[in-house]
């Protein structure tokens, strides 16, 4: 389980509440059962889950913020901290692991000087490990944003990162 994380505050005026209404009401019908998908939509918009958005969501669908926090911290997709411009997902599924994924992971941590789940100071990259994205034939695999880089070895990592600003 992830460690306790503090909800990050943003300036309230950064949140577009009309858009939140659209997500909550139109896209997901104000339905509590759609909580996880609402959170996904909010994260897609802000790149993370900002505290005011969750508090607003809590009022709208009448679920205590504490319970929303519980859901947001239980599922590994969600981030309560702002993430970088580029999200690096290093696959550590079994196939990638036996083909040397861990070495690629170590090289990434070394080059970016950050650990798993952290963001570089310049907000250029966030490094996240994932368990299997289903591209096992290409292992070891690194997914950066939507692009998948397959069959990479640790010495190619630096070059790949250069493509992302």
């Amino acid at each position: 389980m992830s460690e306790a994380t503090v909800l990050e505050n943003v300036q309230t005026d950064e949140i577009d509440y009309r858009e939140l209404d659209r997500i909550i009401e139109e896209e997901f019908n104000n339905d509590k059962e759609n909580l996880i998908m609402m959170l996904q939509a909010i994260q897609k918009r802000y790149n993370y889950l900002p505290r005011p958005a969750l508090e607003y969501l809590s009022l709208k669908i009448e679920i205590p913020t504490g319970r929303i926090y519980g859901v947001a911290t239980f599922y590994s997709t969600f981030s309560l901290k702002p993430r970088g411009r580029n999200i690096i997902s290093i696959c550590l599924g079994t196939a990638c692991h036996v083909r040397g994924g861990e070495r690629v992971h170590e090289r990434l941590e070394e080059l970016l000087s950050i650990g798993d789940g952290e963001t570089t100071e310049d907000k250029r990259f966030t490094l996240e490990s994932v368990r299997c994205i289903g591209c096992c034939s290409l292992g070891p695999v690194v997914k950066i944003n939507e692009g998948i880089h397959g069959r990479i070895s640790s010495d190619q990592v630096e070059k790949i990162l250069d493509h992302y600003e």
Binding site: N34, I36, M37, L39, Q40, F74, Y75, S76, T77, F78, V130, R131
Partner: peptide, 8 residues
């Protein structure tokens, strides 16, 4: 369709 959020 309902999507999960990364929990084995």
């Amino acid at each position: 369709i309902s999507t999960g959020a990364g929990a084995f």
